[in-house]
Structures are given as C-alpha cells and as structure tokens.
C-alpha cells in the first residue's frame, strides 16, 4: 500500500493499540488538537481519552509518569511535540528510564517509546531545531532509531512498541510527507541494529541516517553522472549499531564519508567515523571523511539556516576531496 511517512507512523500506532491493551499514547496536543504534525490525527476520536491522553506542557512529568506506568507493565508511546523539548525530560530519560533495568538487576522493564520530530525544519531557530539522536545514542540502556523511509517508519515503530526497553524514535520533520510503500501485514516489524543499503556502489561509501540518507542518495546519483559509483548506507538504528554492514561496504569501496545533521563536533557521525577507522584502517585509501551541521546554534534567517544543514553540494564536495 502506498502511504506517507506520517500516515505509516499513525497506522503502526493504531495497529499496536489494537493489538495490545497496554499500549497508549500520551503527549501535548496529540488528542483533541490532532497532533502538531498531525501524526496522531483521528486517534482521540477513535480510541478515546483512555488510550490517547492530552497532557499539560510538562515534559519531565509526562516522561516520568510514562516510565512509572511502564514499570507496572503498560507500554506508553510518548509523543514529544518536538525532540528539542525532550531536553526538559533528560533527567527522566537518562537518570531514570535508561537505568531502571540495570539498577534493579533486571527486575523492572521500561517498555516506553519516546517519539517525535527531531532536527531542523524551516526557520524554527535555535531552541527548536536540535538533532537529539546522537545525545541519546551516548546512553547505555536506551535504544535509538532514526528511520528514513516510509516502510522503516512503519516497521521500526512497531518494533519499538514491542521492545521491552526505552526506545528513542526520531522523525525528521522533512520526512513526514514522504511517500512510499508499506506491506499489508499487521505483524510486519523491522529489527533494530541492521543497516540498509540504499544505493549500491564500489568507489566510496556514504553513511547517513534519517533525512541525511536522502541527501546521500542524491549525492550518489550526482556522482553516478561523474562515473563514480557510491554506496549509500542508511544506519537506521544508532543504538544498537550495525557496524558490520558499514565495515563490509568500506572494505569494498576503501573510502568512507559519514553525513549527519547534528553539530559536527561530537555528533554521532564522529562515533561511526572512529569505528571505521578502528576496524577498517588497512582498507582505507583516504581518511574517513565527515560532513556535519555547522557548530553553531541554529540561526533563524533562512539564508544562514540553509548554510548550517548539510546538503547535496556539501556531500559532493567532501566526497570529491576523498576521491581526488
């Protein structure tokens, strides 16, 4: 069935709510207002307040309540209106949710999903444009995924809901209207910790996740024109990370460029680059390259904002340098 990224997320949630009575949605303006990005449209009317709960603007409280409920066996899906607001709930996520299973010696599980739009949209400026996935992927105890396709959004959200661990699920706002296919199968799930190869190639490996996968794919097509064959790897799941697929590609192409929207310095792409360097050193014909966001708070003016977010030209320039 052809659908959009947004609708695929909604369908995954509907099916999981119907499958398991412990699954419920909680978040700001998700019910009566239908969700800021309309991901939860129609769900309040359909499942009522018991399963779709509007909250006050109280992110730490929302995440904490969901976590406590999850310790008692419920399976909350928390919508963050944007992932930038999850910063308020970092204490609940990192100090609490991520630690409970370990600190209790495996007695308590926290099957909670925290999902929402992450990354820059369009002139939302410095406080609303954060890419948070790299921050969370730093934290043992969390799982972190960043799907780039409609099928992944659908299959990975279902996996997230069925996972017994806290899962951070980020959706780049630029992807919501993306079209694609999803299978007609309510039991369809996609495992975490498996990269996808989006474009096969033999000269250079471009590694991305979320919207940057599409930027890499555009760059790969442009490189095709130059007679350069680029392989595009979609990381999909940052934690757990399927490093082997990345390594196998780099051993084949001998060149790697990691692309991520987050601030370049200390972002998750740095982790991927380090691992490639550690494990594929003998195969590399050039240093592992990185293209990341500019190391500045996101500016409002559109011309400056566009400078900050990596685009096809930035990827091409860096790739050509590695190929030179």
């Amino acid at each position: 069935m052809t659908t959009t990224y947004r609708d695929a997320l909604r369908q995954a949630m509907v099916e999981e709510i119907e499958r398991d009575e412990n699954v419920f949605l909680i978040g700001e303006d998700i019910g009566r207002y239908q969700g800021t990005f309309r991901v939860t449209q129609g769900l309040f009317e359909r499942f009522k307040q018991h399963r779709v709960l509007d909250t006050p603007i109280s992110e730490p409280g929302i995440v904490g309540i969901a976590t406590g409920a999850a310790m008692m066996g419920l399976r909350p899906i928390v919508e963050m209106m944007t992932m930038s607001f999850s910063i308020l709930a970092l204490d609940q996520i990192i100090n609490h949710a991520a630690k409970i299973h370990y600190m209790s010696g495996g007695q308590f599980k926290v099957p909670i999903v925290i999902r929402g739009p992450g990354g820059a949209a369009n002139q939302l400026s410095a406080q609303h444009s954060h890419s948070m996935e790299g921050w969370y992927a730093h934290v043992p105890g969390l799982k972190v995924v960043a799907p780039s396709t409609v099928e992944d959004a659908y299959g990975m959200l279902k996996t997230a809901v069925r996972d017994d661990n806290p899962v951070i699920f980020t959706e780049n706002p630029g992807l919501y209207s993306l079209k694609g296919e999803i299978p007609d199968d309510k039991e369809f799930t996609l495992p975490f910790g498996k990269c996808a190869i989006r474009h096969e190639g033999s000269d250079i490996t471009l590694v991305g996740y979320s919207r940057m996968t599409h930027v890499c794919a555009e760059a790969a097509e442009a490189l095709d024109q130059d007679g350069v064959s680029a392989e595009v790897i979609d990381v999909r799941s940052l934690l757990p990370l399927d490093a082997e697929t990345i390594f196998a590609s780099v051993r084949k192409t001998n060149r790697a460029l990691v692309v991520y929207e987050d601030w370049k310095s200390g972002g998750f792409g740095a982790e991927i680059a380090a691992r490639i360097q550690e494990s594929c050193f003998d195969y590399l014909d050039a240093p592992v390259g990185r293209v990341g966001g500019l190391n500045v708070p996101m500016p409002y003016a559109r011309n400056l904002e566009l400078m900050c977010i990596p685009n096809k030209e930035d990827v091409l320039a860096a790739a050509r340098q590695l190929l030179a």
């Binding site: 002139q123 400026s125 410095a126 406080q127 500016p299 409002y300 003016a301 400056l304």
Partner: peptide
C-alpha cells in the same frame, strides 16, 4: 534586533 538570527520568537 538579533541580526536576523533570532526571529519572531526571540
């Protein structure tokens, strides 16, 4: 006010 870096909210 913020050299264009803040916008309406800032």
């Amino acid at each position: 006010t913020s050299k264009g870096k803040g916008g309406s909210m800032h």
